[in-house]
Design a protein around this nucleic acid. Structure first.
Length: 697
DNA sequence: GAGTTTGAAACT
DNA sequence: CAGTTTCAAACTC
């Protein structure tokens, strides 16, 4: 599109016209240094002037808030610096030092504008201000990340930062009053977005809070992982939001507002202190909040908690947040090979064990896997990337509340399995990381670990071997019946829905009341597949172990263990009760990705957390929430089971005795008859995609 | 943190 | 297939 006029509107022409102006000549006569500076800054200005707003501020949805605030902020200090600069330009003795000071001030203000976007407007304490200033230390480093958009419009963050600083300095002397228009435009954009979000929120109010995100996560997880690094940087550094990659922010923008709003609703519902965050969202909060809100829902994490924590217990929780975000970076083994799953196990949280529980009832737990998950190429350093820089070791205080939270949190942190393998080289199913399809990461305490990207070939080979022995070795261990209302295993089941361990446990001494028991660990009841003895699984007794038997066993056990054990059992039962309450919407097994039983705790908990969030919703009917939750889960494409399989007792894919270790599995027939015939209920097991294969496509 | 217990995985 | 061994997590002290 060659437009002759274009050349006429070149910066130079404008500049020359302006230079011809009497004012300019006057200024020019005052200081040649200022003239030089003017030229420089004008270049910066011009370079900005001809960047499209979209390229400068790539994501209206995300950035409009930031930009609006930023603009306001800048507007203010522009006025200030304007006067100062003009002053300096009028005084021949100002020169470099003064202008440097101005630039420095501007730069600082820029940082603070990013960091403390709304501190002025919202009256956030100066403490936060200071802390965020500390965070600014990291800004230069993080801004070095090339956040260039795919289309190349966006320049590297540091360049933009510099430019913006220069722009600020340059505009001080610029006669063009661009700022107001720009600001107003962004303000309009911001308002529009707010309106849209409100509309969206109204729409979404019909849906249950905290439900839709599951599907969204699975749908977008792969995208999420693509840009997780950027997202992480944005959030972990808290202030780098202005430098977000346009791709990232565009992606975030493209994420339906469902998760954000739902998350906010959920948090709002479940925790009063989180309401702050919600209100801020309503008002168009700082991007950090928004982004973390998105993360908290799409990546579903505790980021929001952390963010809100930032306001309450600033640094500590921010560090937690950072740690969480950094700990996201767990290398995915095979995610790229199973794009259809949308979310790999590696997408499950990787929460540091030593983290202090924040708010366990908060949406939590699903984080994106690492960037390389999508790239498909191993990036070894990622696996060794460590949250070492993250400080804030929080001592656990053994208050009852903390203990309770600790238990709950352990459930969550189960997902961030950190193995401790000594002899298996993390290449056997003993290794939780390996079994879960995860590479070991630094927090693992394993020795001679081969489960690392640099040994990818070995890993793949080993996995092949194991799969050749047992094709289901990496398949999810917990399955559920299709009917979430009818419990295929009968009334004795206490599991909210009909999730069961696929192969069943083989417990002898733990009575299926400890996490030795995989069923218990997965938060599911025992099934006829189990060969456990004295089953007292609080999530559901094994078929044939009725309550009386259980009670007898309980008596027996209590006799054996004497009174001191009783309290322990009570604790166990209590824990189990909590566990049951918190975990296992067994619908989870229908999620479009496989998961290992050992990982279920956290993920299930996360889902349940969201569910429990919904039940905490003010004025909402828990049951309706449940059903909504179910229905939302059912929205996940899951019904891939061939019709013929649906009418079989067990789909072939889930046939337990596909395992060579057949002693652990009961025959489908038995399972079918024992449940169907006796209970008169039809057992339909949904197809659960097998765990992504290690083997190359 | 060390030692013990437990049950899954692996092996024979 | 059954028995045994190995293994690492869970648990206890």
């Amino acid at each position: 599109m060659d437009t002759p006029d274009k050349t006429q509107i070149t910066p130079n022409s404008s500049l020359s016209k302006f230079e011809d102006s009497p004012v300019f000549k006057f200024i020019d006569s005052l200081s040649p240094i200022e003239l030089a500076k003017f030229g420089q800054t004008n270049n910066a200005f011009n370079s900005l002037a001809f960047l499209s707003p979209s390229s400068l501020f790539p994501s209206p949805q995300i950035n409009c808030h930031r930009e609006s605030r930023f603009s306001v902020k800048r507007h203010h200090f522009l006025a200030d610096s304007n006067s100062r600069v003009l002053q300096s330009s009028k005084q021949s003795d100002t020169s470099a030092e003064a202008s440097k000071a101005v630039e420095q001030t501007d730069l600082d203000d820029e940082h603070l504008g990013c960091l403390n976007k709304d501190s002025s407007s919202k009256g956030i304490s100066s403490n936060l201000f200071d802390e965020k200033s500390d965070l600014a230390i990291e800004l230069p480093r993080t801004s070095k990340y090339d956040c260039g958009s795919p289309d190349g419009n966006l320049e590297p963050c540091d360049k933009i930062l510099k430019k913006t600083s220069l722009e600020v300095a340059g505009q001080d002397k610029s006669p063009f009053q661009r700022n107001r228009d720009e600001w107003e435009e962004r303000q309009r954009s911001f308002e529009n977005e707010r309106d849209l979000r409100k509309i969206r929120r109204i729409k979404l109010s019909e849906e249950s809070a905290g439900c839709g995100w599951v599907a969204i996560v699975s749908d977008d997880a792969d995208i999420l992982t693509v840009n997780s690094a950027n997202i992480i940087h944005e959030n972990s550094d808290g202030q780098d939001l202005g430098m977000a990659d346009s791709g990232t922010t565009s992606f975030i923008s493209n994420i339906p507002q469902v998760p954000l709003d739902n998350a906010n609703n959920l948090e709002n519902a479940e925790s009063g202190d989180l309401r702050v965050s919600c209100e801020q969202n309503e008002l168009g909060e700082p991007v950090s909040d928004q982004t973390s809100g998105i993360l908290s829902t799409c990546l579903v994490d505790k980021l929001v908690v952390s963010d809100s924590g930032l306001k309450n217990d600033d640094k500590k929780k921010f560090n937690q947040s950072s740690r969480q975000q950094r700990s996201i970076r767990r290398r995915c083994l095979v995610f790229e090979k199973s794009p259809g799953f949308g979310l790999h196990l590696n997408s499950l949280p990787n929460i540091s064990k030593d983290q202090k529980p924040l708010n366990t009832s908060t949406l939590s737990s699903i984080k994106t896997g690492e960037v390389p998950c999508v790239s498909g190429t191993a990036v070894a350093e990622n696996s060794s990337e460590t949250p070492a820089t993250v400080g804030g070791d929080d001592a656990d205080h053994d208050t009852p509340e903390n203990k309770r939270q600790k238990f709950e949190f352990v459930e969550e942190s189960a997902s961030c399995k950190r193995c401790n393998c000594k002899r298996s080289k993390c290449l056997k199913l003993y290794c939780d990381c390996f079994a879960a399809g995860l590479y070991c990461i630094e927090p693992c305490s394993c020795l001679d670990c081969f489960n690392k990207p640099i040994h990818e070939n070995v890993v793949l080979e080993t996995r092949k071997q194991i799969e050749s022995r047992n094709p289901q070795a990496f398949a999810p261990k917990v399955i559920r019946s299709a009917d979430s209302v009818l419990d295929s295993w009968g009334e004795t089941s206490k599991t909210p829905a009909s999730a069961r361990h696929k192969r069943g446990c083989n417990c002898k001494r733990s009575s299926c009341l400890k996490k030795y028991c995989e069923c218990f660990q997965a938060g599911v009841g025992c099934s006829p597949s189990c060969r456990c003895e004295s089953c007292k699984n609080s999530f559901g007794l094994k078929d044939g172990c009725d309550e009386s038997e259980s009670n007898e066993d309980g008596l027996e056990a209590s006799e054996q263990n004497a009174s001191d054990k009783k309290s322990h059992d009570n604790v166990i039962d209590k824990k189990a009760e909590e566990h049951r309450e918190l975990s296992v919407p067994s619908d989870i097994s229908r999620l479009p990705f496989a998961y290992s039983g050992k990982l279920t705790g956290s993920f299930l908990h996360s889902v349940t957390s969201s569910k429990s969030c919904t039940t905490l919703e003010h004025g909402s009917d828990p049951s309706s929430c449940q059903s909504k939750f179910d229905s939302n889960l059912q929205a996940i494409p899951e019904d891939e089971t061939p019709e013929v399989l649906k009418h079989k007792c067990l789909p072939l894919a889930l046939k337990p005795n596909s395992s060579p270790n057949s002693k652990r599995v009961s025959s489908p027939h038995r399972e079918c008859t024992s449940t169907t015939a006796r209970r008169g209920r039809k057992l339909i097991l949904k197809f659960v995609p097998p765990f992504p294969s290690f083997s190359p496509p």
